[in-house]
Design a protein around this nucleic acid. Sequence first.
DNA 1: AGCACGCCGACT
DNA 2: GTCGGCGTGCTC
Length: 758
Amino acid sequence: MNATESGLFDDVVPDAAPDVDPDDVVEVAVAAPIPTTLSYRAPRDLPCVPGTRVRVPLGSREVEGFVVSRRPGGAEDAALRAIVAPLDRKPLLTPAVLELGLWIAERYGAAPGEGLRAVVPAPVRRGATGRVVKHATLLASKDEVSAYLLENADRAATRARCALLKTLLQKGDAPLSDVLKDAGVGPSVVKTLAKAGLISIRSVAEDDDGFDATPNVAAAPRPILTDEQRAAVETTTAALDTGGGAFVLHGVTGSGKTEVYLRLAEEALARGRGVVMLVPEIALTPQTVERLRARLGNVAVLHSNQSDSARARRFEALAEGRVRVALGPRSALFAPVRDCGVVVVDEEHESTFKQQNAPRYHARDVALRRAKTEGAVVVFGSATPSLEAEAMVERGEAKRVRLTSRAGGAAMPEVRVVDMRREKPTGPGGLLSTPLYHALRETLARKEQALLFLNRLGFSTQTLCKRCGWRARCDLCDVDLTFHRGGAKLLCHYCGADRPPPEKCPDCGAGDVKYRGAGAEKVAEAVAALFPRARVARMDGETLAARGAAERIYAALKNGEIDVLVGTQVVAKGLDVPRITLTGVVNADTSLLLPDFRSAERTFQLLCQVAGRSGRGALPGRVLIQTYEPDHYAIRCALAQDHDRFAEEELRHRRVAGYPPYGRMARVVYEGIDDVDVERTSRAHAEVLSQTDVVRRGAARVQGPAPCPIARLSGKWRRHVVLRAEKDEAISELVPVATRGGNSRVKILFDRDPTALL
DNA sequence: AGCACGCCGACT
DNA sequence: GTCGGCGTGCTC
């Protein structure tokens, strides 16, 4: 507006007190990938403060969005469209969480609306009301059931009925769907049994894992702290009173890190502040929950397979300040805990703390951010801190607190390497070396238990023709299919496609198809063949798929009903069985050979974790690591259980190569059905990235495009560009460019601080 | 993400 | 001549 116009205007309409109050203006992050918030008018008396969901017009349709801010409007805002209606009476997001969601969106290259979607779980958004679940209960007495079973034992017609009764006898009262699944029977059986008066079906509010019960905190035993623990509690608590701080709690397995978290949390609660505690998905067990509840009182447990209503109630309780502690996996970071004083990230090095879909945030970085804005203490706990954590300590951004002795006084196991280059393999498939075979035999003879670890699912990793060299490959992905003998199929571990294994080579018709490269399934079979009297069980993604399987296997292990447990990744974490005295790593190299800059770190962590499964009780433990690379530093350091040396060595490698945590990186992935399109788009986009200011002045580099190590996934061709910079801010400058430029044939995915480059 | 607008091929 | 293909760009 120029001066003349302004003067005229002033003469006609006084600029204060117009006849009608203009509406307020709210900024809304809409549920669409729009890179900015949009402004809407909202009547002054309309209750929608920041954090409230609203329905707004967008083009020719209506969408949901979150109010991000609100201000009084002026005459120039009259042209804005008005919001349709608020969707909540109270805001769903606390200011701290709202801020966090917007920060995530900006940092990780997502639209504001997408950032906020990540911080509010869908069930809460839907505003769920109570869910009711049908439960089955046994009406008949135990004796009556036994009599019934005896009477009908051999009759085919009643087999399903008997199965259901047996299951119910074990479970007592349980959700009907679980009972049916466990018994392996259909719903028709239920009616018959209910009519006969043997069972009853009733509707109950869905189980809430005792959320409403108030535990008696005073009665909980409080263990005496070791000197190290006391020092850790004192240091972290001190920061609670001085505006916060970051700590790396570096404690060997069994050194009592959890007790430090609990004491610190108690201190926060005593000061009227809240606590957020993050654990890897797999650690969220009833035992963990119980331990926390016993000490900290009511704890809001948040996890993904919780009912809508249960989650909504937890959110409400936290937001209202009735419950002050939130516990859960990654997403629990966004629990609406009021005045958060402590954020704990337990097992900080775990890869599950990185979200694998947009916005691809890392819980470690978001936890730091939340702690900073709320003046909270953040504690990253681990026995094998990530190199990112090491770097934080090195740069003075976090303080290391050490716990070096095991709280229970148990000794660390003896660890040995078996050099497979010099070994004559034993047993079917040549999986076990002579030393491991003998160790197993001794362990079994002593009636102790053994754990065999192989980080590979399935029976064998390659299916090939001896004559012509044909290999079973996935039609949709650039990978070999894994043979699963149990399911008698070839399975793709990336897209899930499966097909029957061929009897003859589909190429040349030769009769002998060969299976090569062992998975856990084959190890279990080999052990069973070598030790026919041993009770062998398998624990991996496959056997754990059934509900309650983990608990069943764990119980069997504790009760001594399993002699040898064979497993993948999943057995590395958290198994605590005193009679396991031998851990065998069948092949330490599987994770070492991956074409990724984190493979050494992952291998080291994995080996340390499996090693920690052995000798947890009074009996001394030992660990045998089979490898073809006995001189690799990841293996040598794991052998010596020397994390500091590993970190030092690996940090040196990373520094030389400019990999994180020295320098920052981000990855832009291009994927599409047609590789020619993908190639063209990726090249054009890389060029655009290269022309940005940051890159031209040398503050960031663009590498690629190149095909991804796994060049095709689920039928889509994939190429990527890797962005590298010394400073985090340089990457930030590239985010807006890196996330734009996709088209209908080629999708662009952006991954900042990637955990892998596959 | 939707959805409209817009500019080139085979149809009544 | 127009119905419709989906490429491009905008949504307060």
